[in-house]
Design a protein around this nucleic acid. Structure first.
Ligand SMILES: [Mn+2]
Ligand SMILES: [Mn+2]
Ligand SMILES: [Mn+2]
Ligand SMILES: [Mn+2]
Lengths: 222, 222
DNA sequence: ATAAAAATTTAGACAAATCTAAAAAATATA
DNA sequence: TATATTTTTTAGATTTGTCTAAATTTTTAT
């Protein structure tokens, strides 16, 4: 292990990375909920991660990743997304099956393994859900995508990313034939429940709930 | 996990499988040495594996795998060897680098992952060290190979398997340009230390110690 | 500003896997 | 057979990651 972190510690810093917005500290409870672990256990772990200089932490305040913690998190995310790409593109898994398996593979800690896997895959820049893959130095592109819920009517857009990545949302999208690269256009927006009627491709019309529309990221299609 | 075993438990049943010769029970001390774990710890684990019906165990007697234990061990060996094949053939690792990484990958427990990996690799029958890969049902071919130390002079043979698989032996073989598939012929056998002089391919002559010759498995080359 | 509610930490316990040291059983040797 | 040696098990601790319950701190609401 280059990082010298246990599987559990890796999962914590990854979770902190995902919860960190701007510079705001991440609360014990948010981690507790995301990791499905008692808040008391989170407190214990934050103390340990502080000792290992992976997080800044002050009691009753919350935590933030240190620079080392951020680098570590990006490496775990790199592993996760490269494995997802491999599972999807090489082994033929569908995009809603890859996450859980990658959750285990991401903890196999050989650096040369991941760098060779990256080369074998042809240095992919995005995983099967449209999320960017950090490079070997931990650089990650920040995308400027918009939520489908905020797109004006009749503007052609392309799906580039899915926010929430539970098996449930992926199942629903699969059913609606929506995936990364799908071209969409919002036809109507209903004020009552903020649901959308969209046109996919050239023919098919489907309804999309508010929740769903807030988890589909799109970019303008020129 | 289909088997519902921890990483540690998996390592134990794999170790027991490798130590089991004929029907002879495996001793606590042999396991202790192979796993580099105190004998007292092995005793504790054997009790637990007995509870889980993975081994037959009686105090002061030793242990044997149950049918379930044997099936489990074969599945772990299947994963290990398929990953070794992948690392070697797809990612370009040399055969002496793959074992340690596979030691971690073997514990990722999705059955569909391994079966799809198997298909992706084209159902290979042998790993990079020449060891047979069990199929999805746990069937494994038993090879009838001979030790180089027991081959008569001037008989052309082909290297098919390496016994011990430490990085050290693989380094030595690599230096001598001996790998799976190499054609050999024993030229002389020195009584003093039972070292061999062998001809590899058509030109190169090299010396091989007794230890090394007892870890190179060969078959007749017709 | 005070009381109620929510978030967080501390305290104490537990299961898994490990260790060392001591006791017990099996095996080898004289 | 009696004794010495080796092997194995038991006893008691330790580390990691977890839990529940109780105490404390912070935030929200009256
Ligand atoms: Mn994922
Ligand atoms: Mn994980
Ligand atoms: Mn191996
Ligand atoms: Mn292992």
């Amino acid at each position: 292990m280059l990082l010298n972190l246990s599987h559990t510690e890796e999962n914590y810093i990854k979770a902190i990375y995902h919860l960190e917005q701007d510079g705001k500290p991440v609360s014990t409870n948010d981690l507790s909920e995301l990791l499905k672990t008692a808040a008391a256990s989170v407190t214990d772990m934050l103390k340990k991660l502080k000792q290992k200089k992976m997080v800044h932490y002050k009691a009753y305040y919350g935590c933030n990743l240190t620079e080392a913690g951020r680098k570590g998190a990006l490496m775990i995310i790199r592993r996760h997304r490269l494995w997802e790409y491999f599972l999807s593109k090489k082994l033929g898994f569908s995009w809603d099956e890859v996450h859980d398996i990658a959750e285990e593979l991401e903890h196999v800690g050989s650096t040369s393994l991941i760098d060779k896997l990256d080369a074998f895959l042809g240095y992919p820049r995005f995983d099967p859900h449209g999320d960017p893959i950090p490079d070997e130095k931990g650089h990650i592109v920040q995308q400027q995508n918009k939520l489908l819920s905020e797109i004006p009517l009749h503007l052609p857009v392309e799906v580039v990313q899915i926010g929430d990545q539970s098996a449930h949302i992926l199942e629903l999208l699969s059913d609606k034939n929506i995936r990364i690269g799908t071209l969409l256009e919002v036809r109507k927006r209903f004020t009552y429940d903020q649901s959308l009627e969209i046109k996919t491709g050239s023919k098919s019309i489907t309804q999309i709930s508010k929740e769903l529309s807030q988890n589909i990221l799109v970019k303008d299609h020129e």
